[in-house]
Structure formats: structure tokens, C-alpha cells
Design a binder for these strands. Structure first.
Lengths: 211, 211
DNA sequence: TCAATTATTAAACAATGTTTAAAATATAAA
DNA sequence: TTTATATTTTAAACATTGTTTAATAATTGA
């Protein structure tokens, strides 16, 4: 009778194995070049078996998607200790870009890929994304409260920041900067982050934050 | 003997017809829900025929892609008359977002879709994209020259602006703002554009550009 | 051990992009 | 016009995709 626990555990382990394998193949061959058959073959099961653990391919992708958001949020939480919201905002931008550049496949799934976006809002799992956004929003709010960002609506400013970093990440990941060599891209991103973080703040702050 | 001209003309017309039909179906059913068979059926040809006019599906997409860039550049040129680079930059941002929102399928192909990005840089056709970018860059350069954007590298600032607008567009088009109603999104974009255009400029300009 | 539930599989299905060899058509020369 | 040549167009097939189904194997509880 107590084997139900074990069974459930095994089912979960199998799910984990599938997710892990899928992610491996994704990063190896690109997300759309991975078939259900390929995943099945790698774990030495038949293709049909995958459908006992996931409703369809989108469901696997969605699981990876959720994992990615957990990763990002965990990273974001490392900024908790920073008191100055301006500094926090700057670091958050760098961290976000670092995450995107070092986990291009995760990032692609989370913020760019099609067919995922629609599914997100069905479940409560969007929470992970919402938390990430709220974290940014709170920081922007603090900046405004302290007068470091002036004359602005919180939501407009937050979306602007998000758009800015996402835009850079998306352009790079989807190969729209391929005319530049990698090192130039990296340098430019760094410069752009610096540009935003110094020039968007009010003058007093701008002077203060000159390292 | 003089029928060669006509033949070539007909071939071009056929290409145009295919492109037009493909674009119609793309906007109607979403880019990835359009098969070669569907395109062929709509123009009442067999699927195989398409391959006499285009190397493969990617080639059709690429043709549409190029068309999109021409459209965008034509739009951009309407800003030629604006002397003040700050105002020009502001209008360019609005125009870019307007184009993206009103031509989501074009925009997707041009700046987001996968499999297109790689092909762009093969041919000289990237010129269309480059021109668009250079136009932005020149405007940013002028802003810096006039002291309206301070303390900044041209390329970093240009990329920041591009990233900013592209980020907003990409997030919306790929359904990452689906938790907000459409009208809220529009309002926020407007606010974000305003936020950037007022707060990124140096104080003197900021006061002057208060309409 | 035996019945019942569950997991797994092989096979098939429909749809995709693409290729190929044959048929239809158009062209140029006789 | 007739004939030979080149070009379009097509039907059919191929390989690959995600997914479903009905049968098989394995596991479970009694």
C-alpha cells in the first residue's frame, strides 16, 4: 500500500529526467531541432512514453520555462542586501543581461519563443514571472520615491527598463547583432547599461554614482 | 526572340504573387501556421511549383523580410525634415513602435523570428537594415554633438535606444504582456517613450522640450 | 497465484518541407 | 505547320515531424 509514494516519486524522477534531457538537447542542437523522438531515444524509451508524463511537447517546454524563472528569481534575490535602489537597479540590469547571455536557451523560452507565451497565463505558474517583474517595479518605485528618477509614472518607467534590457538580449539571442563580433557586442552592452544607469538618474545622483 | 523580357517579367510577377499571398496567409493565420501547400493552393498551383520561384520556404520569408525593411526605411525618411535631433529621436521612437504595432508580422520576421537572422548577412540585402540603423545612429550622434545626450559613446547610446524600443515591441508581439489589456499596454508604451525621451536628455534640453 | 491496474511499446495517422521523374506547355527553327 | 528543344507544372513519393491507439509487458494488491 505504501508503494504509492514511491510510484509518485518515480513519476517525478522520470519527469525530471525528461526535462533534463530535453534541456540538454535544446542547448546542444537549438530548441526547434529537437524532436520528441530524439528525447525519447536519449532516455531509451519509446516516443509514446513521453506522453505519459507530459501532455505534449509544449508541456515539456513549459516545464523548462518554469525552471528558468525560478533560476532568474533566485539570482535576483541575491540583490536583497543592496540598500541604495539606484545601485540595485544598475546591478539588476547587469544581472539580467548576464543571465540572458549565459542561459540563452532558457531566456529564449522564457521571453521570446512563440507558443509558450499563450500558455503562461493559464496556470498560477506565471507567479514566478510576476515576482520577477514586481521586484524590478519595487526598485524603480524606490528610485522615484528618493527623487533619483524624476517626473515619471512607475509602470512606464519599469516597462521602459525591462524593455531596454530585454531588447538588447533578444536582438543578440536572435542573431540581429551578428554583424558585430562577440566581444564588440559585449562591450556595447556594457556601455549601454552604463549609459542608461547614469543618464536616467537625476543630476545629483549622477554625480554621486560616478565611481 | 524578344520574348525573353516578357518571360522574365512573368517570372517576377509570379514571385510577387507568391510573396503577396504568403504575406496574406501569414497575417491571417500566423507565420508558422502557413504551409507551402496552403500558399500553393491559394494561388491554384501545385506545391512543387513554388520551388521554381523560390529555393525554399526560408527564401519566401526572406523576400518578405526585405520588403519589410524597405517599408520601415521609407517611414523613417519622413523624418528628414525635422532639424532638432532630440525631437527627431523622439519621433523616431514613436514611429518605430507604430510600425511594429501595426505590422506585427513584418516586425516579427524582421527582428524576432528565428532562421531568418542567419540568412540576412549573406547577401548585400542587409543594407536595408543597416541604413535604418545608421539613420538612428546619426540622430543620436547629433544629440550628443549638441550636448543633449551627455557623457556617452555613440554606439552604446544607439544600441540602448534600439534595444529599448525593440524590447517593448518584442515583449508585446511575443505575448509577454498578455496579462495587461491592450489599451493599458498602449498607454504604458506611450509613457515609456515619454519617460526615455525626457529623462535621457540633459536638463537644459529637458526643460526646452516640455511641450 | 491471479485479477486489475499501470507503463510501455510498435504501428499508424495526419501534416510538414522538399525532391524527382513524368507530363504538359511554350518556344525556336525547319 | 511541323518538329525538336527547352521550360513549367504537376502528381507522387520521401523523410521527418507531433500525436494517437490498440496491443503488450510489467507491476501491483489481494
Amino acid at each position: 500500500m505504501g508503494s504509492e509514494d514511491r510510484k509518485e516519486r518515480e513519476k517525478l524522477e522520470m519527469r525530471q529526467l525528461i526535462i533534463k534531457t530535453a534541456m540538454q538537447l535544446f542547448t546542444q542542437n537549438g530548441i526547434e531541432n529537437v524532436s520528441m523522438r530524439a528525447i525519447a531515444e536519449k532516455i531509451e524509451y519509446s516516443p509514446g512514453s513521453l506522453y505519459s508524463y507530459f501532455k505534449d511537447k509544449g508541456d515539456i517546454i513549459h516545464a523548462i520555462h518554469t525552471e528558468g524563472f525560478k533560476k532568474l528569481y533566485a539570482l535576483q534575490k541575491t540583490l536583497d542586501g543592496i540598500g541604495n535602489p539606484v545601485e540595485k537597479l544598475a546591478k539588476m540590469g547587469e544581472l539580467y543581461m548576464k543571465f540572458a547571455m549565459e542561459n540563452k536557451d532558457y531566456y529564449d523560452l522564457m521571453f521570446i519563443a512563440k507558443g509558450v507565451g499563450d500558455k503562461i497565463f493559464e496556470k498560477k505558474e506565471w507567479d514566478a514571472g510576476q515576482r520577477t517583474y514586481d521586484y524590478l517595479r519595487e526598485t524603480v518605485k524606490d528610485c522615484i520615491a528618493r527623487g533619483n528618477i524624476i517626473n515619471s509614472d512607475v509602470d512606464a518607467a519599469t516597462f521602459a527598463f525591462w524593455g531596454f534590457v530585454h531588447g538588447m538580449a533578444a536582438l543578440i539571442i536572435r542573431g540581429r547583432c551578428a554583424m558585430m563580433p562577440d566581444e564588440v557586442i559585449q562591450q556595447t552592452v556594457k556601455g549601454s547599461l552604463h549609459f542608461m544607469n547614469t543618464n536616467l538618474m537625476s543630476v545629483e545622483q549622477r554625480v554621486m554614482s560616478n565611481e
